[in-house]
Write a protein that binds this DNA or RNA. Structure first.
Length: 1126
DNA sequence: TTGAATAGTATTTTT
DNA sequence: TACTATTCAA
């Protein structure tokens, strides 16, 4: 048999399998065809069959005359594979491309026409840099120019706007005219007419204030559009292009160069477009140009408007509508309604939902019907609906019920009937959950044949429930790859993966991760940060070194680092000011001394070795290129061997390689890039939210599939668990600010409700992934016990079809199995204890002071690191600025006292500037300039405001030591003590935004059980003063904010202390004092956002993890208890 | 009852 | 910053 005969034979068998409507679409080879292919109707199949049919037609068409365009690379692969099974090797001669690849080919084949020979694609970072340049070039009164806050705020908005313009092929003029249209129309709109009298408007007036608001937004958009051209010029100037540019260039070339267009029109006489609903305006234009030669082009587009989830808002049906209208007379429209994937009940449920959408072709084009009919199992029996399927289905569904009933207690019975009830009714029912009897009865409900809707108590229980159900299915021999869990957000899947992992169940996920956020890379970057800091200014990065030494790969016992750190601070204390040493220098010096005496240096060997290696790397900064430096960091110092021996070796190597590649790419683009410049660029990426993406493939391919609703498109599974169907994840999810607001006149369809329709399509896509079993679930409460609503989409379905719904309550024993996951993030870590002798030396002379007290109450580990180990404090920009302000004010009042008169403001500013210059190393160049300017400004204003009122009878920077209160020693340094007659006021300066410190003044309350830090400080001072000078009448503690509020007010807050305050704080001091004495500070607070607990956990320094005490009631338990009591 | 004013809170999905 | 939820007022 010849190849052609083989192919013919094969094609005929495949063709025979097509149903009549599919054949109708395939047979009409000439002229335009639009196929609306709902989920599971054999979309790829029909494209392949069509290509086969074209090749077999009488027209002598060669494979290379056919162009098949798709949306994604994955689509190309799938298409090619299917086609090959249809027509054999000829499949490789058919041009199957993504739009981008096709355009690139056109450009590459006609380089002379495009003159783009020297261009490189632009990187995300370069785009940001260009946008910064663009923004820097804005004139003074430009609507997008900012002087305060983030001056580059508009970057992200501009970026998405320009990309949108390219994708949709919109010009600035086009948008501007739409803006005018919109603004002119506003006064006619009802929502801009005042309905009720207010201060400035009467009833019936046009709300000009609201219109002005819109106008302001629109002028911003207009200004942005006007920059589009300039941005493209900038890009060209740098020899860079966008991916989206490829399409625009080809459009332009086709439009202006007829010969070029003709060449491609001649070559591609048959054009097929897959996923037509997702093609952008620009992509669609390419198709139009290619087919524009013929009145009746041989074009075949396949798509499903109901599955459009990537298209820009408001445009989803437009392509298809325009297509239908453009060829109204000759167009063959075929709607595929035979579904070979799902059972009828699943299709019915899906239909119930999607019927709510208004923006659908079936509602816009007359005579179309899109009722999907299940042909599951009927493929081989001549397209008849197989009635016997019900028995198959119910047989297998009872398997699901069995799985559920085995381990889960189910509230069932009458309540299953939730059909037809509105959301509010459902909501009301939730309050009845608690009163419902918990039974072990199974769901043996005839309705189980329909998809199930389960309500779990909490998200946690939902995950447990799904995990248990999956476990059962796997036990019954269902393949993991036949099961999928679909959710809205990746976060859910990540969490769920933990549950499956705990149970040892196989799973499979693909997700995009940001390399820069990976722990290994963060460590590498910290290392590079340190090297840069030390290179810039010796001993400038000491606090980073402390952290770096804790990295696992050195293998240094943390106690040894603590010890070294304590020795350094001891030495510094004795050395007082001059010759302040650092961890790095201290260790280096000691290491060199070692050979000289026979005694041990007292320092850990590995520690010395690590510092030595780091020392070498610091030297390399000067001499090596960035790339070699990174290589050294990776190869030397045990980093590489640590990774290679790590259980997650493969993944870590991937991450490190990807990062290394990024560095290589950066050095290629900027051959002489310095470490500093590189780190700046990384910082810029972080700030602008740019990611270095890497696809993580976790688990194995036989595992249960974990997917987002978006990611599930085009896939199908026997069992689908559609989870997290809560309103908060769907329609009530806020979308973050995404740049500019567009005039609604831009969209052909009304913008209102469009978001909902898009979401509904996404929900629909998820539902239609299921072949036989669909379990939709949501939870009734958050982990914190707040009630959650089911998604409105569920209610919408319920109104049409009774979903078999149940409230699932898990068995305590089942929940207990997952206990290990419950507190995982909230465990309080404990570090190894220090040598007894060493601690005693460190805290032997401990005297209580405010910051130690605050540190301890915040987290005992913070106290340990700051007050016992005395880690080097980071050169913090804000803190150093605060010190400079303090310093300047201290000198101001000293001089006032000495001279008896207030010195001129210039001296205040000079003292400030002096201090700033002295500590220049704490700032970057920009920070320094900004802080200097800012400090001068606020101090001048502060001086002007208060200069007439400064009390001259006062004590400045008064040190109080060893005051005994109830046998406890207290100390403190007071900024200023003012005497007004017999009354004494203590003043403390504060820098920072006064508005943001409000809760620091709070007295103890349920939300802040220990009270605010400033409140405690005030009470502490009062307590101390009363013991120190009982004869002084300390009436108040005043917090003087040196920085004004946004409204330029200077704020002073006086705290008057009462008896209860005294008692409270005394109690706090007593507790902490005793705990410090008994060396009880090795265990952290366990709060999720605690920096110190986080430090200990991420570096795996903990020797033990403790569950938090039941101080605050654990929310899930709380709900359970309430439930039990009813 | 409903619009208007104010306070509070939280940031996605994909190519 | 922008949107939602709440409170306020006609």
């Amino acid at each position: 048999m010849t190849n052609r005969e083989k192919f013919l034979q094969h094609f005929n068998t495949e063709y025979a399998r097509l149903n009549p409507e599919q054949r109708r679409a395939v047979d009409g080879v000439e002229g335009p065809v639009m196929v609306i292919a709902g989920p599971g109707t054999g979309k790829t199949q029909i494209l392949s069959a069509r290509i086969g049919r074209i090749l077999l037609s009488d027209a002598q068409v060669e494979p290379q005359n056919i162009l098949c365009l798709t949306y994604t690379d994955a689509g190309v692969v799938a298409m090619r594979r299917r086609l090959q099974s249809f027509i054999g090797p000829d499949a490789y001669k058919v041009a199957i491309h993504t739009f981008h690849a096709f355009c690139n080919e056109v450009i590459q084949d006609n380089l002379a026409l495009f003159e783009k020979t020297a261009l490189d694609p632009i990187s995300d970072l370069e785009r940001i840099e260009l946008l910064k340049e663009l923004i820097d070039g804005f004139p003074k009164d430009h609507p997008l120019k900012r002087y305060r806050g983030d001056v580059y705020f508009e970057i992200s908005g501009l970026q998405s706007l320009f990309s949108l313009m390219k994708r949709e092929g919109w010009t600035g003029d086009h948008i501007c005219s739409k803006i005018d249209e919109y603004l002119n129309d506003l006064p006619n709109r009802d929502e801009y007419i005042c309905k009720r009298a207010t201060k400035s408007f009467k009833k019936g007036d046009v709300r000009t204030d609201k219109i002005d608001e819109q106008r302001e937004r629109m002028e911003k958009l207009r200004a942005a559009c006007n920059e589009f051209k300039k941005f493209n010029e900038l890009m060209r100037g740098r020899n860079r292009y966008d991916f989206d540019d490829m399409i625009s260039w080809v459009i332009e070339a086709f439009e202006t160069n007829e010969t070029l267009l003709r060449t491609y029109q001649e070559q591609y006489q048959y054009i097929l477009v897959d996923e037509y609903q997702d093609t952008s305006g620009a992509q669609n234009r390419i198709v139009q140009l290619l087919i524009s030669f013929w009145d009746k082009p041989n074009v075949f587009v396949v798509g499903d408007d109901d599955q459009s989830i990537y298209r820009f808002q408001g445009a989803n049906v437009e392509n298809m509508m325009a297509f239908a209208e453009g060829y109204a007379e000759d167009l063959l429209t075929v709607v595929l309604t035979s579904n070979y994937r799902s059972t009828q009940p699943i299709l019915d449920v899906s239909k119930a939902l999607i019927d709510r959408n208004e923006e659908r072709l079936v509602k816009r084009i007359g005579g179309l019907s899109k009722e999907l009919v299940s042909r599951v199992g009927g493929v081989n029996s001549e397209y008849a609906i197989v009635n016997g399927e019900e028995s198959i289905v119910s047989g297998e569904l009872s398997v699901v019920s069995g799985a559920v009933s085995g381990e889960l207690s189910v509230v069932s019975g009458e309540e299953n009937d939730e059909g037809g009830k509105s959301q509010s009714e459902i909501r009301n029912q939730k309050s009845e959950i608690n009163s419902a009897a918990v039974t072990q009865s199974e769901i043996r409900n005839p309705k189980s044949e329909t998809p199930l809707a389960l309500e779990y108590l909490t998200v946690r229980e939902e995950m447990i429930g799904v995990t248990v159900a999956i476990e059962k299915l796997l036990e019954q021999g269902v393949a993991g790859s036949d099961i999928a869990v679909i959710y809205r957000e990746n976060r859910y899947g990540e969490e769920l993966a933990n549950y499956l992992r705990l149970k040892g169940l196989p799973y499979f996920t693909k997700r995009n991760l940001n390399i820069l956020e990976q722990p290994v890379i963060r460590q590498l970057l910290t290392m590079l940060d340190y090297l840069a800091a030390e290179h810039d200014m010796p001993y400038g990065g000491d606090e980073l070194l402390f952290e770096i030494l804790h990295f696992e790969w050195w293998g240094i016992p943390p106690v040894e680092i603590a010890k070294a750190s304590m020795l350094v601070s001891e030495e510094n204390y004795q050395g007082r000011g001059q010759n302040r040493t650092s961890l790095r220098r201290y260790v280096c010096d000691r290491r060199k001394q070692a050979p000289r005496d026979l005694f041990d240096t007292g320092l850990d060997k590995k520690l010395c070795e690590a510092v030595h290696q780091v020392e070498g790397l610091i030297g390399a900064v000067r001499n090596e290129t960035l790339q070699t430096l990174l290589e050294k960091v990776i190869r030397e110092g045990g980093f590489l061997s640590h990774i290679v021996n790590h259980p997650e070796k493969a993944w870590l190597l991937q991450v490190v390689t990807a990062f290394y590649n990024h560095v290589k790419d950066e050095t290629r683009r900027h051959p002489y890039i310095t470490l500093d410049a590189f780190l700046n660029r990384i910082g810029l990426m972080r700030k602008e939210g740019l990611v270095l993406p890497l696809v993580q493939v976790a688990g194995n391919e036989k595992g249960v599939n974990l997917l987002t609703a978006h990611g599930s498109k085009g896939l199908e599974y026997e069992h689908v668990f559609f989870v997290g169907c809560n309103a908060s994840s769907w329609e009530k999810k806020r979308k973050p600010y995404s740049g500019f607001t567009f005039p609604d006149t831009l969209f052909a369809s009304n913008a209102a409700g469009n978001d909902t329709e898009e979401l509904r399509r996404l929900f629909y896509v998820a539902l239609t992934r299921a072949k036989k079993h669909l379990v939709i679930s949501y939870s009734a409460h958050t982990e914190e016990g707040k009630p959650l609503e089911p998604s409105m989409f569920l209610a919408e379905i319920n109104e049409v079809i009774d979903l078999a719904g149940s409230r699932v309550r898990l068995d305590g024993a089942v929940v207990a199995e997952f206990a290990a996951l419950q507190f995982s993030s909230r465990l309080a870590p404990e570090v190894a204890a220090l040598d007894e002798e060493l601690v005693t030396r460190a805290i032997g002379s401990f005297v209580m002071n405010v910051s130690a007290l605050n540190n301890y109450l915040r987290c005992p580990l913070e106290f340990y690191f700051r007050n016992v180990v005395r880690i080097p404090s980071p050169k913090n920009e804000a803190a150093e600025f605060g010190s400079a302000v303090h310093h300047a004010l201290e000198h101001l009042f000293h001089k006032q006292k000495e001279k008896g008169a207030l010195p001129p403001v210039s001296e205040l500013l000079a003292d400030f500037t002096w201090y700033m210059n002295r500590h220049r190393e704490s700032f970057t160049r920009e920070q320094f300039a900004r802080r200097l300017e800012y400090g001068t400004e606020i101090l001048r204003n502060y001086f002007t405001k208060y200069s007439g009122t400064f009390n001259s009878v006062n004590l400045i920077e008064h040190n109080i030591r060893n005051v005994s209160v109830d046998g406890m020693l207290l100390k403190g340094k007071l900024d200023k003590i003012e005497f007004r007659g017999k009354e004494v006021t203590i003043v403390d300066y504060k820098t920072g935004d006064p508005e943001k410190c409000k809760e620091k003044f709070a007295r103890p309350n349920p939300k802040i059980p220990a009270g605010g830090d400033y409140w405690r400080q005030a009470v502490f001072y009062k307590l101390m003063m009363d013991a120190y000078k009982p004869e002084w009448n300390t009436v108040a503690i005043e917090f003087d904010f040196i920085e004004p509020t946004k409204k330029k007010d200077y704020h002073r807050e006086q705290v008057v202390v009462n008896e209860m305050d005294i008692a409270d704080v005394k109690e706090q001091i007593r507790t902490v004092y005793d705990k410090v004495r008994s060396k009880d500070f090795y265990t952290g607070c366990g709060k999720e956002d605690c920096h110190w607990c986080g430090f200990v956990k991420t570096n795996k320094l903990a020797v033990a993890l403790h569950e938090l005490k039941e101080e605050e009631e654990e929310p899930a338990r709380f709900i359970m208890r309430v439930a039990e009591n009813h």
